[in-house]
Design a protein around this nucleic acid. Structure first.
Length: 560
RNA sequence: GACCCUGUAGCUCAGCAGGAUAGAGCAACUGCCUCCUAAGCAGUAGGUCGGAGGUUCAAAUCCUCUCAGGGUCGCCA
């Protein structure tokens, strides 16, 4: 980054004020091919200004620019191609990593302000499906990235523990449920009831009315309803807890929707006071410009999703005083969040501007949405177990003497799943494929973890001691590794600004690839003269890989 | 019908603040463990970037239209 600024500064000097530094910085690009140098400046735009051909301008610039950081500079078909002084840059980059360790790439954007991240938020009485994986791992990663960028985070699991669905479930349980069965395998049995309800409701529409009725009873504190609800909730939460532990995810708050039960009426009153509430077809709504009205209360007086989210937003602002609040929720709910933010604006709360819906694509199966209602779900728990046992099998084949096998298998297995999800662009849908998810070769979490273990192993065998004076490799072969290391801080920043962990996932793969190529071509430990310098580079790679993996929510085992 | 997202190699996907010859990974085929972990490396093969216009010195990238898939659009969350 500093390197780029240095080059931009030189260009600015020679351009006689035709272009601002900022603009030059934006124009400077990384050439596609290595023989075009490390940085390139296109001169086409300047052709009109200077009334000269781009190539002529490039030649003139190239001839004038001199800087110790630049090794060679040439003009090729309208571009100024800059070749950096490898030794100097490598020294700066590697020294930076050695000095900062895991803080390399940290940046203070947030000023210790509070960012709320609402993610995962599964519905109780439903199994934790693959569909919930995305919000969970994206949210976790975003909170880690935000912390690295200087925010104080509050991770909230807005458990879906309230709503008409529980009325439906209660109806189903009263009709077809069996206490012993539910106790034995709660989630599965409750799912069965839920699915059965929706199947039967297609024939018998009075079931839906009964569901609504029982939810109303629940909201009014009916003892039977409340008892069942509490039971379903506890069973579900303890089931979810296992999965979060497996994935290494923690939350600061589990306040779900039910928590806001007694906080909704005040909001409704407030909206009434402000005169933004209207009656429409028996329901209470807030009309909004440019989008459908937001439903606040149903005809029967019971609340809705939006009502609860409004109450939650106010509560969170009062409790935490957030400057940013992210909702990591699927694409398909984008209208809901637009409405939510619009209502808050109508209510006069300017802090709505700090709120964003971090949407993401769906996990598809055969190009279609996976639906809980139809029972077409793949259970996350089962996928994790499969991945872990596959990882264990691999260890037994490849490294049978490894200590702590189970632990490493867990880190690698869950790593494969988390990484597979995070490497996809946040907004894009993912086609579910168990085979791809359980793949440990190529662009995968285990590939990166393996590379990290490889680097760790070199450091141990080479008895690398960090306190030694920094010596820097000047191998030509190390250069691609150095440029990847150099890019890391910018990647972190970009991934924060776009709220997209996939940037980091891709970067960590590229660094791994560069390092593995280096590893294949250079014997690190065999040459006593270069050993120390090479190990310094290896150490830098290890640090950045580990930190990159950490930001994605993966562990980096020392051996595997 | 309206609005939103997506269409790049056989498959899964990068690239999309416009830039020089279109990039990976799987799968296929060749090589490389007497050598620091082969979960690796080197290589071969595979694409008129859905289609048609337009803007530009320059378009996978921006604009318009069109086709295809998905999502959402009042009492689910």
């Amino acid at each position: 980054m500093k390197v780029k600024e240095e080059v931009a500064k030189r260009l600015e000097e020679k351009l006689q004020g035709e272009l601002e530094r900022r603009k030059i910085l934006l124009m400077l690009e990384k050439p596609k091919y290595a023989d075009m140098g490390d940085l390139a400046f296109p001169c086409f735009e300047l052709a009109k200004v200077f009334r000269k051909s781009p190539q002529n301008i490039a030649c003139e610039l190239a001839g004038k620019i001199k800087d110790p950081i630049i090794e060679k500079i040439e003009a090729v078909s309208g571009y100024v191609n800059v070749f950096l002084n490898k030794k100097m840059v490598a020294n700066e980059v590697v020294s930076g990593v050695i000095e900062l360790n895991e803080n390399y790439g940290s940046i203070n954007i947030g000023n210790a302000e509070t960012m709320i991240i609402d993610f995962s938020s599964p519905n109780i009485a439903k199994p934790f499906s693959m569909g919930h994986l995305r919000s969970t791992v994206i949210g976790q990663s975003l909170s880690l990235i935000a912390e690295k960028c200087g925010y104080k985070t509050v991770k909230i699991n807005h458990i879906g523990d309230w709503g008409t669905q529980f009325g439906k479930l209660i109806v189903a349980y009263r009709l077809w449920g069996n206490e012993a069965k539910v106790k034995k395998d709660p989630i599965k049995e409750l799912l069965k009831l839920y699915v059965q309800f929706h199947e039967e409701a297609e024939q018998n529409s009075t079931l839906n009315d009964q569901g609504r009725e029982w939810f109303k009873k629940l909201e009014h504190g009916n003892e039977e309803a409340l008892g069942l609800w509490k039971w379903f909730r506890e069973e579900s939460l303890s089931e979810f807890e296992k999965i979060y532990e497996e994935l290494g995810i923690t939350f600061d708050s589990y306040h779900g929707e039910a928590f806001y039960n007694d906080k909704m009426q005040p909001i409704v009153d407030l909206m009434e006071e402000k005169g933004i509430l209207e009656e429409s077809e028996g329901a209470q709504v807030v009309p909004l410009a440019g989008m459908p009205p937001c439903l606040i209360k149903k005809r029967d007086g019971s609340t809705l999703y939006a009502t609860r989210d409004l109450a939650a937003a106010l509560y969170r602002q009062e409790t935490y005083g957030f400057s940013k609040s992210l909702y990591v929720v699927g694409n398909e709910q984008s209208l809901h969040f637009q409405q939510l933010f619009a209502v808050l604006k109508e209510m006069g709360y300017n802090w709505y501007e700090g709120m964003s819906h971090i949407s993401f694509g769906m996990m598809l199966k055969d190009g279609k949405k996976m639906s809980t209602r139809k029972g077409k779900v793949v259970l996350l728990d089962e996928v994790i177990q499969e991945a872990v046992s596959l990882a264990l099998k691999n260890i037994n084949e490849k490294n049978p003497s490894l200590e702590n096998k189970d632990n490493v298998a867990r880190q690698v297995g869950t790593g494969a799943i988390i990484f597979h999800d995070l490497k996809h662009h946040r907004q894009h849908d993912i086609e579910f494929s168990l085979d791809d998810m359980l793949r440990f070769e190529g662009e995968t979490g285990p590939y990166v973890q393996y590379t990290h273990a490889r680097a760790s192993s070199l450091l141990v065998k080479g008895q690398f001691n960090k306190t030694d004076e920094v010596e820097v490799v000047d191998d030509e072969l190390a250069w691609p590794v150095v440029t990847q290391l150099m890019a890391f801080p910018e990647v972190v920043k970009r991934s924060f600004h776009t709220y997209d962990p996939s940037q980091i996932a891709k970067h960590v793969v590229e660094l791994s690839r560069a390092f593995n190529q280096y590893y294949g071509a250079v014997r690190v430990l065999d040459d006593p003269i270069h050993k120390q310098a090479r190990l310094t580079l290896v150490y830098s790679v290890k640090v950045v890989l580990k930190e990159g993996l950490r930001l994605l929510g993966l562990k980096a085992p020392e051996k595997m």
